[in-house]
Simulated assay, not measured.
Amino acid sequence: MLLVFDVGNTSTKIGLLQGRELSRHWDLSTQADRTADEWGIVLEVLFARAGRKFAEVDGAAIACVVPPALAAIERFVRRDLRSEPLVVGPGVHTGMPIRYENPREVGADRIVTAVAAHEEYGAPVIAIDFGTATTFDVVDAAGAYAGGVIAPGVGIATEALFEHASRLPRVEMLRPPRVIGRNTVQSMQSGILYGFAGQVDGIVRRIRQELGAEARVVATGTYAELVSQASETIDAVDPFLALKGLATVYRRNRATGS
């Protein structure tokens, strides 16, 4: 079995794959100071609840955008799983050419998401990740990572509205019953949801225009399902895109002996 970690700024997604099948998955808050011992305790509990054992794991892959968190996960994998983890980064074979001016600037999470989107949905494709930031990652018709767009995330925008407008409350992000809100909460929910859906549709249309192709659009991340309900351009929602991409990159590196 393969154990994969997608460590983001806000949450850490963990997956356990049997072959190509994602058999178990967990979503934890990202804690940059979590130690290798703490990782061992957390994973031991999760594995026990899933009826699994560390001895069943024969490989691990990590995508991490929080550098302080990486070393502890690597130590846990080496010590408790007795395996050398594959850490996605510069020099790792992804099977996808990177057209960025400086490929080292592209986050590992964005690369594995693009790899999975290409493998699952073909090319050209646009992968939108609704995480701490909202990122658009573009794979062109040739299967290369063409670049993308980075915008503020839904959570960041919602929190900023609460913090900087003294009379507005903190709201739960839900789809309101109508666009025209009949109270403050509904009005805020409408502005956030339809504002982000409009942003998505506008950016996607401009990307498609630059590509000269009707690229498919797949969404992932915390708010993917919600925003997709109001979007006119999102074709599919795949909550496990990054975990699938990690597994694909792992297989490609093992196949090349890297």
Rank of each mutant, 00 (worst) to 15 (best):
Y250W: 14
V139P: 07
F76Y: 15
S228W: 05
I14D: 02
G131Y: 00
G191E: 11
L86M: 13
G221D: 01
K53Q: 14
N102H: 13
P169D: 04
D235A: 11
I150S: 00
L193D: 04
Q199H: 06
E172M: 09
A224L: 04
A144L: 03
V106E: 00
R78E: 13
A69C: 07
S11H: 15
V7E: 01
F162H: 15
L17H: 08
R20K: 09
T184Q: 01
T12P: 07
P176R: 03
I126L: 02
R52P: 03
D58R: 11
V45Y: 00
E105N: 15
I180E: 09
E38F: 07
A60H: 11
D27Y: 09
R78L: 07
T113D: 12
F136Q: 00
P85C: 09
A255Y: 02
V149L: 14
G51A: 07
A236G: 04
Y145Q: 08
V112R: 01
F47Q: 06
E21D: 14
I192F: 14
T248N: 00
G181H: 12
A146V: 11
E21I: 15
E21L: 12
R79W: 10
G131K: 02
D238P: 05
I41R: 11
A72C: 11
W39Y: 13
A108H: 02
G147E: 07
E159S: 13
A60D: 10
L241Q: 08
T35S: 15
G91V: 15
P124F: 06
G202H: 08
T30E: 04
I41N: 10
S11W: 06
T248K: 03
A151V: 03
L81R: 00
R99D: 08
E56G: 14
P177R: 15
L161V: 14
A242W: 00
L161M: 14
Q199R: 09
V45W: 02
I126T: 03
L16F: 12
I128Y: 02
F130H: 03
V106C: 13
D235P: 09
P68L: 11
T132Q: 01
E232R: 12
S166I: 12
Q229H: 06
R252G: 02
G148Y: 04
P176V: 09
V65I: 08
I180T: 10
C64K: 07
Y145P: 03
V4I: 02
R251A: 11
R167F: 05
M96P: 13
M173W: 08
L3G: 04
I203C: 01
A247C: 05
A142V: 05
G155I: 06
A117K: 02
V237T: 09
I98P: 01
I203G: 00
V179I: 15
V217C: 03
V125E: 00
L243V: 10
R175T: 14
P68N: 04
A63K: 01
V65L: 02
A61Y: 03
Q189S: 06
P169I: 08
E105G: 13
S190E: 12
A69K: 02
H93P: 11
S190F: 10
S258D: 14
G148A: 01
V217H: 01
T12V: 07
A142S: 12
G245N: 03
V57P: 06
A236Y: 11
V217D: 02
A127W: 04
I126F: 03
T158K: 10
G153E: 03
E214S: 14
T35Q: 12
D6L: 00
L241C: 07
